[in-house]
Design a protein around this nucleic acid. Structure first.
Lengths: 199, 199
DNA sequence: CCATATCTGTAGCGAGCACTACAGATATGG
DNA sequence: CCATATCTGTAGTGCTCGCTACAGATATGG
């Protein structure tokens, strides 16, 4: 079998650029013209590699979560539930105001409501946000077993709470809140965990 | 001077319908065709009354905030900062899962990131979210003077915190979180105010 | 009743959208 | 070196978008 002409662009580097465009303009606000220009390729290459606009988004989301996996592991490996919450929210405050990225979080900025024909884009983003919440919940179940969370604590509720605060910080970051403002929110939010801790 | 033919539709009723469409599909996801059909009018009537799509959004936002003004007054009139927070978050949980409305909050769902040409839509929404935060901050300044908040409490930080949690709940509601889940988040969030209270 | 002013519905405008047909280029398998 | 398979760039496709020209309808002021 013949192999055909090889691809001339680096898919991961192109995805990084696509990620940025989706992050800044949202799924519907990002146009194929903007995406191809940022990626340095032409439309046929995009469609050959990723199928369509939604396929490109999914690939970009995969890369987004893969890139954050290391950081998330660091968060979950904190010694106590309280420290998990602090690392999570402080890290979120910093990354959402990192000048190297668009403000906020791609999983929120990407699109909460979409027009007819893109209904499952919000769904896709929500599913990925839920993954983080699941990890947090399981970590808090463990914290309860290990005793650093009170026996009356509700791991699912605490994980949901952290998920909500992160998303809310993303909304604020997207509308210009600076790092100090987000850290303030993080600091206030963490207090909940001190009240739920045994130490 | 001649007066011209009078308008045949009720502008407020039409705005209620437009609000719904923007709420469910976001600013960019909502099309003029969907809007005019929901409003029961034709494009020329829409443009004569509201100027353009963005003007219609602003009018719908005005109506949205006006409709919530009463509720907000009830929130702010709670006796203590802690009760303000509870009414705010519980009311938010209920309204964001009210089956009579699309899920979430129009000021979040409307659009966090937009395409070229609609850049100030997110700005417009953010400005209106900031108004609520301002009201909360001033209410907490008063609570501090009145002594039901500790003297070490930071009214601005607490207001920002409530604003972030509300926005986060909106994100969760938009992705299908039910009323019970949001109330859980509200309950956890309120604990911060118990720790900051003197009673 | 007439002149004027505004609203309404039909029909369609140019622009920009996501997406693709096609031809030339570049690799592999035989 | 040839046949095949895939990628690349050019140049579009049809469609839907926000928006509007126009003509008919309906009110007021004189």
């Amino acid at each position: 079998m013949a192999m055909g002409r090889p691809r001339e662009f680096d898919a991961d580097a192109a995805l990084d650029q696509a990620m940025e465009v989706f992050w800044r303009h949202g799924y519907e606000g990002a146009t194929i013209a903007q995406l191809t220009e940022a990626m340095g390729i032409n439309p046929p290459s995009l469609y050959a590699a990723f199928g369509n606009k939604e396929g490109l988004l999914k690939a970009a989301l995969d890369r987004y979560t893969a890139k954050r996996a290391d950081w998330m592991e660091g968060v979950l490996s904190a010694p106590t539930a309280r420290d998990v919450a602090e690392r999570m929210l402080m890290g979120t405050a910093d990354s959402q105001t990192d000048p190297d990225n668009p403000p906020g979080c791609l999983l929120v900025q990407g699109g909460l409501a979409c027009g007819t024909g893109s209904e499952n884009v919000p769904f896709e983003l929500a599913a990925r946000r839920a993954l983080t919440e699941d990890q947090l919940r399981e970590r808090f179940v463990r914290a309860k077993k290990e005793g650093d969370l009170k026996q009356t604590a509700d791991p699912a509720a605490l994980a949901r709470y952290l998920s909500a605060v992160s998303a809310g910080m993303g909304v604020m970051a997207s509308s210009g809140a600076d790092r100090e403002a987000l850290r303030q929110v993080a600091n206030v939010s963490v207090k909940v965990f001190e009240e739920q801790s045994t130490t």
